Computed example of a mutant assay.
Amino acid sequence: MYIISTSDTSINAVSLAKRIDVTYKTAWSMLKKLRQAISDLDRGILLSGAVEAKLEVYMKQPIPTYEALQREHAAIIARTVTSTNCSYFKIKLLPAQKHPRGLLTNHAEKQFIKDHVSIDYTHLEINRRFVHPPRCQAILPGIARSAFEWMNETFHGIGLAYSQFYLDEFCFRQNHKAKLGTCPFEYLLGLTLSSATKSLAAA
């Protein structure tokens, strides 16, 4: 928990297994449970107030052939800005969006709002078109690019089934940068203990 919450770049299962002298399977299982706890927390936090969002392309292919484009996936990066000017970020994959480089569909947009935006938001602005850099240099595209590059450089390829957990981990780290006076390790420790208590109660 300490390594995943305080490291600037996180850690993959191969490196963790060597560092704490366990098998790869054990290290992978530990990291999976921690990322699951982070994702569970994020699902319970809805964006409220003034919300900004933008369509992005996950696994964007450098050469857009027909076959390459089939590997791309749509995602939305969004943030809410609080009264203290701190942003809370979310990056969510959009399974309902078939063409990431096109316009955001009404169905995908409505599903995102339903799942991740509070009903008491005061303003919602969504850029429904993917814009190639460097035409758009705003905060959201930069955060999205940082997330996708971090995933590639740290984990060297992640299957789509697990990608959302890693995106949630990136946002967890990004969101904690703005929380002055808070310790991400203590926060993650309390989160996992709470999840374990709920699991035991359910059993």
Score class of each variant (00 low, 15 high):
D40G: 07
S29C: 11
L34G: 08
E186Q: 11
E52Q: 04
T26L: 09
Q61E: 13
T105A: 08
R71P: 04
Q137S: 12
A27L: 06
Y24K: 09
R35G: 12
Q70V: 08
T6R: 06
Y162M: 13
F148N: 03
L93I: 05
F185Y: 13
E149K: 03
I158T: 06
P64S: 12
A144T: 01
H107I: 12
A96I: 05
A74H: 10
V57S: 06
A161Q: 09
Y88T: 08
A17L: 09
P64A: 13
R79P: 04
A147K: 01
T6K: 05
P64E: 14
L47K: 03
Q111C: 13
V131A: 08
D42G: 02
H107S: 13
R71T: 05
Y88Q: 06
Y187E: 15
I45E: 10
T154Y: 04
E52T: 03
Y2P: 04
A178V: 11
L34Q: 13
I3N: 07
P100K: 02
A144Y: 02
K98S: 14
H132K: 11
K177M: 13
D40M: 07
A108C: 10
L167W: 00
S199V: 05
V131K: 07
A37V: 01
A78C: 05
V14K: 14
N106V: 07
L167H: 01
A202N: 04
A178C: 12
N127D: 15
S48H: 08
E67A: 14
L47V: 04
A17F: 04
N152L: 00
R129L: 14
Y121A: 12
S87A: 06
A75E: 07
T80L: 05
P62N: 12
G49V: 00
Q174F: 04
A138M: 09
A202W: 00
E56H: 06
E149M: 02
N85Q: 02
G190S: 15
E153P: 01
F89P: 05
A13M: 07
A196G: 03
K54N: 03
D168E: 12
S83M: 09
T182Q: 15
L34K: 08
V81Q: 07
C183Q: 14
F130H: 14
Y88V: 09
Y166R: 02
I91F: 00
L46Q: 00
P184W: 09
A75H: 00
E72F: 05
I4N: 11
K98D: 10
I126F: 09
S15C: 10
A203N: 11
K177N: 12
W150G: 00
S163F: 10
S194N: 13
R135T: 06
I63E: 15
S10V: 03
V22E: 04
Y66H: 14
K54T: 09
K18I: 07
C86E: 15
T9N: 01
P64I: 11
E149Q: 04
Q137T: 11
H132A: 14
A50I: 12
G142E: 11
K90F: 01
A13S: 14
S15F: 07
S146H: 00
D8M: 02
L167I: 01
T80G: 13
Q36I: 06
S194K: 11
W28T: 06
A147G: 02
M30G: 05
D21Q: 09
I63F: 10
T197N: 08
I143F: 00
S87P: 00
D8C: 02
L41H: 01
V117Q: 15
P62M: 08
H116M: 14
A196M: 04
V14M: 13
M151S: 02
R101N: 03
L180T: 07
